[in-house]
Design a protein around this nucleic acid. Structure first.
Length: 479
RNA sequence: CGGGGAAUAGCUCAGUCUGGUAGAGUACUAGUUUUGGGAACUAGGUGUCGCAGGUUCGAAUCCUGUUUCCCCGACCA
């Protein structure tokens, strides 16, 4: 069997494989702080590309960015009963504002206790609610479409790098509307925006749907989600959109005067995607040789690797590589000329593990033929081909095709690993045979003790009721 | 937060039972020959043994506490 860059393989131990892909690609590492990660430059570059592209989308939809403090007064949580219930168990709380040194040891100064503790934001509905109560006055102020890019704290009991960390990065949109209909329509619009973004940018196929009541966001009328599948058949809640109805408007007193001069409560929604997207993308696409990045979020879509022979004119080769790099940059392609003095074959492996979509090899052959040799990361050596420098812009097409192919592959994986059954007994049969994937069945079938039994035994959860068919529920193991 | 495992060189780990002052592979540095999916030889540098106490003439090793990671649960808008 061929040697793989990552051990163990996905088949052998998916969880260990996942962590090794991240460290081999140099994306992130565990930090000394419990449950938190340090995102390294290559990993952060991926997040920046996600940020940049999604930010452009929401701005084109009329959303404006703003920024609130990381700390939320404890009293804000008390205003919405369900909400505090939902987040109480995973909140980090700031209680003191000063340190002291005793015998050279730094400790908390117990005399410097805050009169009101602050909660490190687990989400910002309360802050936005309080602000909107002042910012919304007239129907002319609506809709108010806001977003913030921020860090979030949730004291997770069992963290997993990117997929579930105690601190993570996200965007949270918070919007207020004059009518119930507008608000719901917009929440659903954001859900489809996420679905398309996941497809076009992260090459992720997803199931979109509504969360069942027990999975709903604390304080929402409806929670919508898009769920993506990992290669071991588990589901990741990759983004959500909540229709908050008037819960927060009433708790925080977000009122406006209508055209008729009447005072009305606004309707609000909120929606977010986080750095979990990176984790979802890794478990969906990567292989036993490491990371596979869809071109749209690859820090470098192409990496040029020179192959130097001892009797070669190094300067001529370097100059040629620079020329190739220039023409790719001119074609709007993110490219890196890896001119470091590693061995060429080591560079090849390095960029395989880091998931660079296209590897461009340039050596004596290419130099003499005015060409380059390209290899697609997802297809490996079989996809290797030589193209002429004159038609170098064809690489753009290869990247576009690759983006689509990775999506189609993930779509096939998901559809092939989704089984539809009619009864809870059939679902049980599947799970008993160690089925890895999603199971679709009539929702009412899961409203019995038999489902609870299944849930206990196989650790499955209701993922969502697909928008197009709310009588059906998708159940799966969760990340 | 409960149960189990772990923490020693950048990385993977041996050494811990039986206390005596730190080791391998790999990586790294230099040189030579190499280079198209993980090169070979030669010569070198590398450690608060997670952290804090304790026992001891002496602690990576024994004891106590603590932090972090991994696995299984519970938890997870």
């Amino acid at each position: 069997m061929a040697k793989t860059a990552i051990t163990p393989t996905r088949e052998q131990d998916f969880s260990a494989w996942y962590q090794n892909v991240i460290s081999a690609a140099d994306l992130a590492e565990n930090s000394p702080v419990r449950g938190c990660m340090t995102i390294k430059p290559y990993g952060y570059a991926i997040w920046e590309l996600i940020q940049k592209q999604f930010d452009a989308i929401i701005k084109s939809m009329g959303v404006q960015n703003c920024y609130f403090p990381t700390m939320i007064p404890l009293s804000f949580f008390q205003k919405e009963a369900e909400h505090v219930e939902g987040f109480a168990k995973e909140s980090a709380v700031i209680t003191h504002y000063r340190l002291k040194a005793v015998d050279g040891k730094i400790t908390v100064d117990e005399t410097a206790e805050l009169t009101e503790p602050y909660v490190l934001r687990p989400t910002s509905e309360t802050l936005f609610g309080e602000a909107m109560s002042r910012w919304v006055n007239s129907y002319r102020d609506l809709p108010m479409l806001l977003n913030q890019w921020a860090n979030i704290f949730r004291w997770e009991m069992r963290p997993r790098i990117f997929l579930r960390t105690a601190e993570f990065l996200w965007q949270e949109g918070h919007c207020a509307f004059a009518t119930k209909e507008e608000c719901l329509k917009h929440a659903l619009k954001m859900l489809s925006t996420y679905e398309n973004f996941a497809k076009d940018t992260l090459a992720l196929f997803s199931y979109t749907g509504e969360k069942t009541p027990e999975e709903r966001f604390a304080g929402a009328d409806n929670t919508y989600t898009f769920e993506t599948m990992s290669q071991d058949g588990k589901s990741s809640q990759s983004g959500t959109s909540h229709n908050l109805g008037q819960h927060f408007a009433k708790s925080f007193n977000i009122k406006y005067q209508s055209e008729e001069g009447k005072e009305e409560f606004a309707w609000t929604n909120s929606w977010g995607v986080s750095s979990r997207l990176i984790g979802a993308m890794i478990v969906a696409h990567s292989d036993d040789d490491g990371l596979i990045l869809p071109p749209a979020i690859a820090p470098y879509e192409c990496v040029i690797i020179p192959f130097i022979k001892s009797d070669m004119d190094t300067k001529a080769l370097t100059a040629y590589c620079e020329k190739v790099k220039e023409s790719l940059l001119n074609a709007g392609i993110r490219v890196l000329f890896d001119n470091s003095d590693m061995r060429s074959s080591d560079k090849v492996w390095k960029w395989i593990k880091k998931g660079a979509p296209i590897r461009i090899e340039i050596g004596a052959n290419e130099l003499s033929q005015d060409s380059v040799t390209i290899t697609r990361r997802d297809l490996g050596k079989a996809s290797q081909k030589q193209i002429n420098l004159k038609s170098i812009s064809e690489i753009r097409d290869v990247l576009n095709t690759m983006q689509k192919d990775i999506y189609e592959k993930h779509k096939s994986l998901t559809l092939d690993s989704t089984k539809t059954v009619k009864t809870i007994e059939e679902a049980k049969e599947l799970l008993a045979k160690d089925f890895k994937g999603f199971i679709k069945l009539p929702y009412k079938e899961t409203l019995s003790e038999k489902y609870d039994e299944l849930k206990e035994t196989y650790k499955i959860t209701r993922r969502c009721l697909p928008l197009e068919d709310k009588e059906t529920v998708i159940i799966a193991k969760s990340f």
